[in-house]
Nucleic acid binder design. Structure first.
Lengths: 269, 269
DNA sequence: TGTACATCAGTGAACGCGCGTTCACTGATGTAC
DNA sequence: TGTACATCAGTGAACGCGCGTTCACTGATGTAC
């Protein structure tokens, strides 16, 4: 009955010497596999029913196990949801990191930004419901635990790297002639962000970075949630242009877009 | 049993002469009242259970009527959902329109933009779940009918008015020295938006306007859905500053913010 | 104004269905000696 | 290597609950003459 697709699994070495490997590994492997099977099926169910409609019983039915068996793996529905969220954040983060890493010219922050944006949108389009779980409406009655914070910050961390690279290249708009004033109250309120981003960035750039991050996900959400239906024909074309402009106003790219970071160096959709 | 709060109700005159007013109105009034009661209670339920968890039976229980009675008013759960969506769009739109109308100096597009943004955020904060229904994750299995389109465009229409006012004041950035190029492919893809906005605006401004709209809702969603938790301390302060910057880059306000549209002329939260 | 008929609102029982979680249990896997 | 025991995975019945929608019905409201 168990429709487990036996797939290669890298179980860690647990770091110790005294691990009775062979034997334990058999049981543990089965456990890890079924755990993955459960989240896999659960994510599929997310697509048709949304997070609220996610039913443990339906998942177990698909897997051919009894409804009570899930409780060996997840102590409650909420815990399963948390696992799905973390998995999705990690996948999205990995997609963005890979996209960034693929850009050869590391100093070309514009190209890296473009690559990250496209990877984000691309993953979101391919995993609409996982994306909605992360950036859509909060699930009623569910509060994401602290464990989701770290995986959620993978893309932001990438962006911080770009900001510092840009800063080192003298591209911090806050230090240039087009700098925008940051009132004291605003400076105070962005203190947590500044903390996260590390020293060396102007207040102006911190604000611009927060806005870039907001705009990136705002644009993806807008498209996915259907709010661009009557106003834009080709979402991909518009997104690329839009993100190019965001890059310009964040100082990652020259307004002319001359040599770097132009959004026309790759497939659009 | 019926816990109907008898509230004043303006039923239209139906336009004709031959309306047997007095009699029909009694029945119709009751109908209109209970209809409103149902949506009112349904919206309250939205707060605790979300759109998927919205239960017709629970609503009727609260109203003290039998579960089958709703079907005299809404032919299905989806139809009730549609009513809620339209109601919410209309409320939000009205809030923004009122906020706009309250600005005395009509030529001060910056002030009007600020006012509209604050009204949008304010309404969203007061009606988090209605907001999520409009701009959060799509409801699985539900497709919003055409009837929601018109009420959804009330704020966009306000913004279009601002754009034209700004254009007439010679504030269209697309016609100035800081104009950004709009590639042909992008120009083509924004045709529907251009259609909606009417003639007289540069391509550059159309793009900026779409981005402003995206950013406005992106910022509100980000805050409401918890994605600013670790990065910004006072959401209202940051939002005001952020929207000021959006206004600047849309040409609604001078970078200096000298005379107009500064976000510090009203309560912040 | 008064009566006969038509319309409509609301009822309550029923259909067929699904859910999360608990619990005592069987049988397989793993461990210590 | 072989046996006795401990751990763990999975079962199936049960608890108590909720859902959307249909349908034949009663009784009130509205209409035409």
């Amino acid at each position: 009955m168990l429709s487990i697709v036996a797939s290669a699994l890298e179980i860690g070495h647990h770091g110790g010497v005294s691990v009775p490997s062979a034997a334990r590994t058999a049981r543990e492997r089965a456990r890890a596999e079924l755990t993955r099977e459960i989240t896999r099926v659960a994510r599929r169910h997310l697509e048709t029913d949304g997070p609220n409609g996610l039913s443990l019983r339906a998942v177990t039915r698909d897997l051919g196990i009894s409804s009570s068996a899930v409780y060996r793996y997840f102590s409650s529905r909420d815990e399963l949801l948390t696992a799905l969220i973390i998995e999705a954040y990690d996948e999205l983060g990995a997609a963005a990191e890979t996209a960034d890493a693929r850009v050869r010219r590391r100093r070309d922050v514009g190209a890296r930004w473009t690559s990250i944006c496209r990877a984000t949108r691309g993953w979101a389009l391919e995993h609409r419901h996982d994306y909605a779980l992360l950036y859509g409406s909060p699930v009623p009655g569910y509060a994401a635990p602290q464990t989701t914070v770290e995986p959620a910050s993978r893309i932001p961390r990438l962006l911080v790297a770009l900001l510092h690279e840009a800063g080192e290249q003298g591209r911090d708009p806050g230090t240039g002639p087009a700098a925008l004033a940051v009132p004291a109250a605003v400076r105070r309120t962005i203190a947590p962000a500044r903390e996260f981003m590390g020293p060396g960035l102007s207040d102006d750039l911190v604000v611009r970075a927060l806005m870039a991050w907001t705009h990136l996900l705002g644009a993806v959400s807008f498209e996915l949630f259907g709010h661009r239906v009557g106003s834009v024909a080709d979402y991909g074309v518009f997104f690329d242009h839009e993100m190019h402009r965001v890059a310009v106003s964040t100082g990652l790219v020259d307004p002319t877009g001359a040599a770097t970071g132009r959004p026309d160096d790759g497939p659009t959709r």
